[in-house]
Computed example of a mutant assay.
Amino acid sequence: MNTFLGTAVETVRTNNPLVHHITNYVTVNDCANLTLAIGGSPIMADEVLEVMEITGMSQALVLNMGTLNERTVNSMLLAGQTANEKGIPIIFDPVGAGASDFRNETARSIINMLNCAVIRGNISEIRFLAGITSSTKGVDASANDTSSIEEAQLIADQLATAHKCIVVITGAVDVISDGRRNILVHNGCAEMSRITGTGCMLTSLIASFCGSFPDQLFYAATTAVLAMGIAGELAFEQTTGTGSFRVALIDEISRIDQQTLTQRGNYVEK
């Protein structure tokens, strides 16, 4: 992992991966700016008439269910099929999975019809996708779904194995699994849950790394999680409120480098 961290950020900034987002309108601007901050190039095209063409020229595809509507579901599936045909990694963010029948049906369609490279969600969303009883609090994790680290690892392993992908469960301790290996990331701060969109932004960050390292998805996803958690810590150290914290978070991603990742990264590889 340390060897990968040594060149990861520089490689993303050199490659400038094009990341196609079909995402939600609450956080779309922050996702675009965070992609730019790490060195990627964002494009947000959800019209069914162009999604296949745009996806085909991209290095990664983000599918985010945050503000789901019937029109974009078809766009997501068509874009995902194109990504699969061309070997482009799909990063799926099942926002609010478990909250409604429409959302649940869409989440199931995406994971069953498409080969997702990475699925990133909170514990409630991942529990639902894994077929485990879950409750929801809108798009946030429910306190009723609080799991031990060991249980979260087992759930991540189960979903990763079933769908042959990387699973990222974000929380106080982030869990990354490919079904065989686990990495626990202890970076981050509670204030990251007090602004909207940090999960969506992390999904964009994961896509930027995966678009640059399509053959090393496990470590690419982990590096993105580390970078986001460290940026949150650094942003909190210099701000006094949630508005300035949001801006500082993007600033810190734009400044993050090899030295910061290796010195501040707090993770356990299993």
Rank of each mutant, 00 (worst) to 15 (best):
M1L: 12
T3Y: 14
G6F: 05
G6T: 11
E10F: 09
T11Q: 10
V12W: 00
V12N: 00
N15S: 13
N16M: 11
P17L: 06
H20L: 09
T23A: 08
N29M: 12
N33S: 07
L34Y: 02
L36D: 00
M44A: 08
M44E: 05
L49A: 15
V51I: 11
M52A: 15
E53G: 09
T55N: 06
G56K: 05
G56L: 12
M57P: 02
Q59V: 09
L61A: 10
L68D: 10
E70G: 11
L77S: 05
A79L: 03
A79Q: 03
G80Q: 07
Q81G: 05
N84Y: 12
K86M: 13
I90K: 06
F92H: 05
V95E: 02
A99L: 13
S100I: 05
S100K: 11
D101E: 14
F102V: 10
N104H: 07
I110N: 01
N112P: 00
C116A: 14
I119M: 06
R120P: 02
R120W: 06
N122L: 09
I123A: 09
S124P: 08
I126Q: 00
G131S: 08
I132T: 11
S134F: 07
S135G: 14
K137V: 13
G138E: 06
D140V: 10
A141Y: 01
A141T: 10
S142C: 07
A143H: 13
N144E: 15
N144S: 14
N144Q: 14
N144W: 12
D145M: 07
D145K: 09
T146D: 09
S147D: 15
I149A: 13
E150Q: 14
E151A: 10
A162K: 09
H163I: 02
K164P: 06
V167P: 00
T170F: 08
D174F: 09
G179F: 09
R180H: 15
R180G: 14
R181E: 15
N182R: 14
I183L: 12
V185P: 02
H186G: 13
N187K: 12
C189I: 12
M192R: 03
S193I: 03
S193Y: 06
R194T: 11
I195L: 05
T196C: 08
G199S: 06
T203F: 04
S204Q: 04
I206G: 01
S208T: 12
C210G: 06
S212F: 01
S212I: 03
P214C: 03
P214F: 00
L217K: 05
F218N: 03
A220Q: 08
T222I: 08
A224H: 10
V225Y: 03
V225N: 00
V225H: 04
M228G: 04
G229T: 07
G232S: 06
A235E: 04
F236T: 07
E237I: 05
G241W: 01
T242L: 10
T242D: 05
F245Q: 01
R246E: 00
L249D: 01
L249H: 00
L249K: 00
L249M: 07
I250H: 04
I250L: 03
S254Q: 10
D257G: 11
D257A: 08
D257T: 12
Q258N: 14
L261W: 07
L261Y: 09
Q263I: 13
N266C: 12
Y267V: 10
E269L: 14
K270C: 13
